[in-house]
Amino acid sequence: MKQEEKVDFRLNREYCKACGICTALCPKKAISADDEGKPSMINEEACIMCRLCELRCPDFAIRIGRMQ
C-alpha cells in the first residue's frame, strides 16, 4: 500500500462505550479490541475502506478515511 493511501482510523475514546460491534462485524478483521475493549487498527493492509465500522458505530466514536 502506498504511503498516501494509509488508513486514517480515529477513535474518540471518550464517546466509545466498547460495545464491540465494529470489531465483530469488520468484514476483513482489520480492527481488533484493545485491553479496554475499544477498537484499534491492527491490519491496515486488510482494510478495504468499506467504512462499515464508522456507519455502524452507535456512539459516533469512529472516523475512518485515507491519510492525506
Binding site: 464517546y15 462505550k17 466498547a18 464491540g20 460491534i21 456507519l55 452507535p58 456512539d59 459516533f60
Partner: peptide
C-alpha cells in the same frame, strides 16, 4: 468538515444510550 461536525451537537455527546444500543446507529443513519 465531517458530517458529524456539521449536523451534530458535540457538546451533548457522549449520548445517554446504553452500550451496544442500536439507537445511535439509527440516529447516525
Amino acid at each position: 468538515q465531517h458530517v458529524f461536525d456539521r449536523l451534530m451537537r458535540d457538546d451533548k455527546l457522549p449520548h445517554m444510550w446504553c452500550r451496544g444500543c442500536g439507537n445511535g446507529i439509527v440516529l447516525q443513519s
